[in-house]
Computed example of a mutant assay.
Amino acid sequence: MRRLAQLTPFLIATLLLATAARSEAIVPKPFTAVYEVSYRGMRAGLLTLKLSRDGATGRYTYETTADPSMLARFFISSAALEKTIMEIGPDGVRPLEWSFEDGKSSTEKDGHLKFDWDRNVATGVVEGKQIELPLEPGLQDRLSITVDVVTSLLRGEEPGTIPLIDNNKIKRYDYAKKETSSMDTKLGKVDTVLYESTRQNSDRQSRFWMVPKMEYLAVRAEQVRKGKVETVMVLQSFEQR
């Protein structure tokens, strides 16, 4: 390995710039996005995604709320809330606390996890089961993984494989860039890049049409099972703060 003194001034400057860029976290701006959701061709209602930042702590909150259609109310409540609290630093997204409440009187489907990065353990209760799992670098929850993907892309990095806590297991999702295309949306015609998410030994697949010029906002998302599209989300409105 070359010694630092042997490096040319140009290379030294490049290293210094890279170090400076690494020390400053590149983060997505807070936003609110509303999607129309359909399941197997039937309208299921609206889903609102909101990313906010606490100015006092610097922590980020990402949450989803639903406005289900009449038929979908049999399956999901308008009071349902899923939320994650995160830190976003030079090394990416680190979840601190995740929770899900299905909005019903029973708590059997609810969940809550705390990520203790000092002790490297995640603990909590999900669907009535006690959870205690070891943490590992890059580990995400069901919501923070979305912010982690966007943050990686904003930094010019590919998401690659991301470990995720889902219920009482750690699963690994592979994100791969597929193709670029133009798409007509509620916001007008936009240039998108398609990313696909897959998991080994799973028959499910997720697709995201993201807009690089809008901080990789997804204007369309699909969940596919056994080669058939089941759930579709289409962007209806977007506000960035």
Rank of each mutant, 00 (worst) to 15 (best):
V190I: 13
P68V: 09
N120I: 01
K189V: 14
F31S: 10
K29Q: 07
G111A: 03
D166Q: 12
R22M: 15
R59V: 07
D54S: 14
D174W: 00
L51W: 10
Q205A: 04
T14W: 06
G103K: 12
E179F: 13
P9G: 11
M42P: 02
L143R: 07
R3F: 15
W209V: 07
S144Y: 05
P212S: 12
P137T: 07
L7S: 05
D166V: 09
E24R: 12
L217N: 12
K228Y: 01
L47V: 01
D191L: 15
L7P: 13
S77M: 06
I26V: 12
V149E: 05
V93L: 11
E157P: 02
N167E: 10
T192H: 14
K186W: 04
Y173I: 02
S52Q: 10
K178P: 01
L194E: 14
E127G: 14
R172H: 03
T185I: 10
L81Y: 04
M214Q: 15
K83M: 06
L47R: 03
K29A: 11
V121C: 00
K189P: 13
S181P: 06
I165Q: 09
Y175T: 03
G45W: 07
A176T: 02
G103F: 09
S144Q: 11
R119L: 06
T146P: 03
M233I: 00
S106C: 05
K226S: 13
T65M: 12
V34I: 08
T185W: 11
P163G: 06
V121Y: 06
H112R: 04
S105E: 09
L51E: 14
K177M: 02
A221W: 10
G128C: 02
L46H: 08
T8P: 08
